[in-house]
Structure formats: structure tokens, C-alpha cells
Simulated scan of single mutants.
Amino acid sequence: MVSGTELPDLVPGLPPGYRARPMTAQDTGEAHRLVAACERALFGRVHTDAGRIAADFARPGLVPPLDTRLVTDRAGRVAARAWVHRRCEVDVHPDHRGRGLGSALLTWAETRARQAGSPRVVQTVPDGDTNAVALLRSRAYEPMVTEWLLEFPMPAEPTVPEPPAGITVRPFRPGDEHDAHQLVQDAFDAWQQRRQSYREWARHTVERPAFAPAMSVVASAEGQLVGVTLSLDLPDTGEGYVEQVAVRHDHRNRGIARLLLRSTFRAFHRRGRRTCSLATHSDTGALDLYLRVGMTVRHSSTVFRKDITQ
């Protein structure tokens, strides 16, 4: 049985001229450039920031020598990357597609997931990436949920509704972090598979370099946090991004989410941003809310799942 660092570094099935090795923290910049090239080719713009790549690499429990692979060509240029830990991401540079890299990395990810004792592999693929969708379907992956990236154009400063009675809003400030974490985890309990520790959550939100506290908004009632938006100012896109929106269960259906979002949009507009975006998926049931606020769908993705217990 192969275990620990005895796991071979090579990805079986790579075409001639390509080599694979585990990723290190120093590779996150190259990985971001790879993901950016993929997004630019598919969408005409970049959405993912380097902070998200670094946060994924630092996922609790992910063991980089075992759970990550970086593929380079003969010249040492990064051609593809993959990681697997509860879910999986595989990205192949547009200049290297059609050569079997994606298929080889997908096989490696499934093998590694089995070795780690995972019952399934989950991967999100943009619906516009028809080749990747076809590959997953050919490998017995099944659709699980739909994800949408929504946008809110802001040619003029957005209007903001009056707060409901007893509700005050203000920008996020130091000291809000742990209350915001608790609020988000409680609000997401209905659909997320597990609660995130503060450390894991913070890496994806308040500790990311792109975190924008001045464009993040909290709602309070009687001195307690009842709603929050956590925002990123993405340098590669020139637009604002709402990473998370949450309202406490006992304060829903009062217009607080709309108030938070509109306040966030206005804050970004005053910083010179003319578009704000956010992502949601079908398990949250929040799509209609965002559409009512005035957002529109920019593109959709599908989360695919494959059971690997057999």
C-alpha cells in the first residue's frame, strides 16, 4: 500500500513532454495566472483573485505533497494544475488543451480521493466550457447543483432603501470578525455540508488581501449583528465582489438583505467601481432575491459529483 510521501509525484497518463509535481505555497502566483488565463479565454475577463487560490491551498486538512499537482511542459511553463480535498479543481491552460492533460489529472484526482477515503469527487465546471462538461459526463459524473455568477451594473449611484424599524447599518470594522463568522455559519447551516472553523472561514474572507471592510456592511439590532455582507475589491477585474451575504434567521423577510446589498453597491460605486458581482447556487434558494435587487446572471456553472466508493 502506498502512503504518506511515498505517493509518486508523477501523474500517470500524461502525454510526452509534460511533468507533474506537487504544488508549494510559492506556486500560488503561477496557479493564479493559469486560472486567469482559463477565465479570460472562456469569459473574456478574469474573476478569481490570487487570494482565493492561496486560501484554497491553505484548506485545513489539505496535504500539498499528496493532494496537489502542477503540470509543466518541456520549457518549464505551467500547463495545468489540480487539487483534491473534499472537492476537486482541475485547470488546463488554453494553449495546452486537447492533449489529454485534463483527463489524466481527473484520473489522478479520483485515485487520490479513493486513497484518502473520500466517498465522492465533486467538481464545479462552467456551463460554457463544453469540453470539460463532456469529459465529466463521459466519466459518469452527475449534476448536483447549479451555480450562478450575478452582476449589478452601476452607471449611476444605486439608491438605498430606508432601514427597517430598529435596524442600523454601518461599514464593517475591526472586532466584527468573530460575530460575522458565527452569523454566517448559522445562516448557512440549512445548505452547507459542514460548518467552517473561524480559521478556515477567515482565510476566504476577512484575511484575504482583497477584503474590503469599507465596502462590507453590517446590520445591527439592539447592539447585536443580524446581517452582514463581506466584500472583496478585486484588482484584476476592476469591480466589486460580494463574497458572502447572511441575515440571521429571526430577522429575515424584513428587507435587510436588500438593504445590505444596496448599501454595498453604493459603497463600491463611491470608490469608482461600476459593476458589482456575487455568486450563489441552487441550494441556497437566494437567486430570486438577487434578481429582485436588480442583479442579472452573467454565467452559470454546474457542480458535478461522482461516487467513488465502488
Rank of each mutant, 00 (worst) to 15 (best):
P94I: 03
T107M: 04
S103E: 14
R74Y: 04
V92R: 12
R77P: 11
D73V: 03
T68R: 11
R81Q: 14
G102K: 02
A104K: 06
G76Q: 02
L105M: 03
D91R: 15
G76T: 04
T72I: 01
V92Q: 11
A82G: 13
V71Q: 02
L105F: 00
A82V: 10
L101F: 07
R87Y: 15
H85Y: 13
R86G: 11
E89Y: 09
R69L: 01
H93S: 06
T68S: 15
G98T: 14
R69D: 01
D91N: 15
A113E: 00
R81Y: 12
H93G: 05
A109Y: 02
L101T: 13
E89D: 14
D95Q: 11
G100Q: 06
V90I: 13
W108E: 05
V78D: 06
L106I: 01
C88W: 09
D73P: 06
L105E: 04
C88P: 13
D91F: 10
D95T: 07
R97Y: 07
R87D: 15
D73H: 06
R69M: 00
A109H: 07
A109Q: 08
L70A: 13
C88N: 13
R99T: 14
E89R: 14
G102M: 00
R74Q: 14
L105Q: 05
T68V: 07
R77K: 15
A104L: 01
R99C: 12
W108L: 06
T111R: 09
G76D: 02
W108M: 05
T68P: 10
A113V: 00
V84Q: 14
R74I: 08
G98A: 13
P94T: 07
P94N: 05
L106K: 04
T72S: 10
A104Y: 00
A75W: 02
A113D: 01
R97N: 12
R77S: 14
A79W: 03
S103P: 09
R74A: 15
E89V: 14
R87P: 09
G98L: 05
R81E: 13
R99E: 15
G102Y: 01
H85G: 11
R87G: 14
T68M: 02
D73R: 09
T68F: 03
S103A: 15
S103Y: 08
A80V: 05
E89I: 09
G102D: 00
V90Q: 09
A109P: 10
A80Y: 04
A80P: 09
A79T: 10
A80G: 10
A113W: 00
G98I: 10
R99W: 10
D73M: 04
V92S: 11
C88H: 12
P94M: 01
G98Q: 14
A109V: 07
L101I: 08
A80E: 04
L101M: 08
